[in-house]
Design a protein around this nucleic acid. Sequence first.
DNA 1: GCTGGCACTCGCTATACTTGACTGCCAACG
DNA 2: CGTTGGCAGTCAAGTATAGCGAGTGCCAGC
Lengths: 334, 334
Amino acid sequence: MLNERRRRVLQALVEEYIASATPVGSKTLVNRYELGCSPATVRNELSILEETGFLVQPHVSAGRMPTDTGYRSFVDDLIEKGSPALQGSQATSLMHKASEVDELMRETSVALTRLTDCLAVVLSPSVSLARVKRIDLLSMTPHRALMVLITESGQVVNRSIELAEETAPERLREVEQALNAAFDSKRAADIRPLRVALEAAHERDLLVPRVVDEILDALAEADRDRLYHVGIPALLAQPEFHDAAQARPLIEFLEDGISVLEALSDALGNRELMVRIGHENRRAELGNMSIVAVNYGVGSADGVVGVIGPTRMDYSRAMAAVRVIADGLSEALT
Amino acid sequence: MLNERRRRVLQALVEEYIASATPVGSKTLVNRYELGCSPATVRNELSILEETGFLVQPHVSAGRMPTDTGYRSFVDDLIEKGSPALQGSQATSLMHKASEVDELMRETSVALTRLTDCLAVVLSPSVSLARVKRIDLLSMTPHRALMVLITESGQVVNRSIELAEETAPERLREVEQALNAAFDSKRAADIRPLRVALEAAHERDLLVPRVVDEILDALAEADRDRLYHVGIPALLAQPEFHDAAQARPLIEFLEDGISVLEALSDALGNRELMVRIGHENRRAELGNMSIVAVNYGVGSADGVVGVIGPTRMDYSRAMAAVRVIADGLSEALT
DNA sequence: GCTGGCACTCGCTATACTTGACTGCCAACG
DNA sequence: CGTTGGCAGTCAAGTATAGCGAGTGCCAGC
C-alpha cells in the first residue's frame, strides 16, 4: 500500500506540519526534504495519500495536513525503527533529588512539560492495589483518632475519624492490633471482602466496623486523587488554542480529573509506550489531542506518566521524553 | 467630589459594564436606569467622571468604561451600604458534607467558581502556625520510618525518613518521646529555635537532629502546598480572555503557586473582606484582575478563601459568595 | 442647571478587488 | 510507464473603500 517514496513523503509532510502548523504543499516538501523527485511527482503522491485517507486538504487551494491515520502511520514508523533516545543528562538534570514522592512527581511533570511543550500528567500508583504494611490509630482527642495506613510500597494514607464515644488510647491499640492481624500483607482492595470475617470476630465491637469503613473511604478518596497535571500554559501557547474557546472544554475535562484518570489507566500495567492519536481517544474532548503515556514503577506500585498535546505534537520528542522520565521515576522509586 | 447623582451614574455605569463587557454610553444609562435626567446631562456627568479619573473612553466615539479607581469607588460604596447577603441555602446546598478537610476545600472551591464564574482559590491554614499535638515515628522498614505530626487544630503532616542505620522500633519510641516532650504544645514554627536545646540534651544521639531536620522540611513543604484553585475554564469563558494570549501569563502565575500565595496572604488574620482591584495588586500579571478574599477559620488555624476574576467581575455577587463560603468553612472546621 | 439638537469622530462591517499559494490535469519525455 | 514541466483553475487571506451607527462635545434656549 505505502511504497518507500510514498511513506517518505508522508513522513516529511508530517514533520513539516508539526513544525509549521500550516498545511504543507508539494513545493515546500521538495525544497526542504531530499525526496529525489519533482513537485509534480510529489503532488501525485500527495493526492494518492489523500485518497487513501492519510491526508486532508482544508480547501482546494491549500496544502495538506495529516489525518489521525496519517499521524498513526508516522508514529508506527517511529516506534518500529526506535526513536532516538533523548540525552539522559538533558532530562535528568531537570529532575533534582526530591525529598518526598509527591514532590518528585511534581518536579518530574514540570520537566516533562518543559521538554515537550505539552501538558504533563502523572498518575501516581494506586494505593488500593498495594499491600498493607501497617495500620495505626493515633489518638487526637478523646473523640477523635487519626488512622494512618502504610503500604509495603511506602505509600501513606491517613484519615481523621470521629469517634462516637470517648475512647482511650488503649482501646485504640486493641482495634489497631485486630486490624493489623486481619489485613497485614493483604492488598488494600481486599479489605472490603475481609471485612465481614473481621466483624464476625469482633461482633460486640462497634468501633471496628466504623474504622474499617473509614479506611475504605480513605482509600477510595486517595485513589481518586492520584492525578497530577501541569503545563496548561504550554497548551495555550500552541496555535491550535489561540482561541480560548478551543481550550475550554479540554481544561474542563482536565479539572474533572476522573476522566483523565480513565484515559490514562489504559497504559497501566503495560510496559509499552501508549500513543493515542485524536479520535483514537474515546472522549470527544480529546478528538484533536493526542496522549503519549507509559507505565512507570514496578509490580503493584505502578503508575502512569505521559503528555497530552494537540495531535500536531512532536511525537518523536514526546515519546523520548516520556520514556526517559518514566525510567527516572521508576529508578527513584526503588 | 462625588455628588449624589454623579455617584449614581457611576454605579449604573459600572453595573452595566459588568453585565455587558462593552463600553457604555449615556443613552443606554438613561434607558435602563432611573437617573431622572436626560442623556445630555448624563454626558456632562460622564465627562466629569472621566476628568476625575473614574472612567475612560477607549476612543472618542465609544462609550465609557470604569478605571480601577472607578471600580474602587463602586466597591467602597458596596462595602459601606453592606451588600445583600447571598441566599445561604443557595451556597450551602453546594457544599455537601465532606469527610475530609481536603475534600471540603475542593468542594467549596467548586461551589465558589460556580457561584461567581471566577477562579476560586483556597489557602489552607498554615501548619507552621499551629501547635504540635503529637509526633509519632512509625517503623516502615529497618531503614525507614514514617514521621506523623498532628497539630492541635487537627492538621496532619507526614514524612518518610530514611535512617542511616538499622533502627529498632523501641529506639524510635525513645526519639518520639524526646520530641514530644520538647515540642508538645509548641507552635510548629518554634521547633527551629528549640532544636538547639534538644540537641544539647541528646548530644550523643544522631537520630534526633536528623528527624528534626525532616520535620522542619516537611513543615516547610506542607506550607508551600497550601494553595488550591479551580475554575480556569470559567475564566477562559470571560470575554477578556477570548484570546488565549491574554490568559497565558495569568495561568502561569497560577501554576507557580507561590506568587498567588503571596497575593492572598495579605488577607490572613484580617476579619474584613479584602478587595484588590487591578493595579492595586502588586503583581503585573494581575493588572487587569481583581481579587476578593477573606479569612476563614479562627485563631492559629486560619486560611484564606477567595476568587480571582477580571476587574469587570460582579463584585457584589463575588463578595457575597466569598463571605458565605468563608462562613461555611469556618463552621465546618469547628 | 437642565435639555434638545447638531456637527463631528471613528470603530466596525460589508463589498469589491488583488494577490499568491496551492492543486489537478495534460502532454511530452526518457 | 513513471516522471516532469507547464498551464489553467480555485480559493483564503490581505487591502482598499465606503457607509453605518453609536456615541461624544458643544451650544443655544428654556
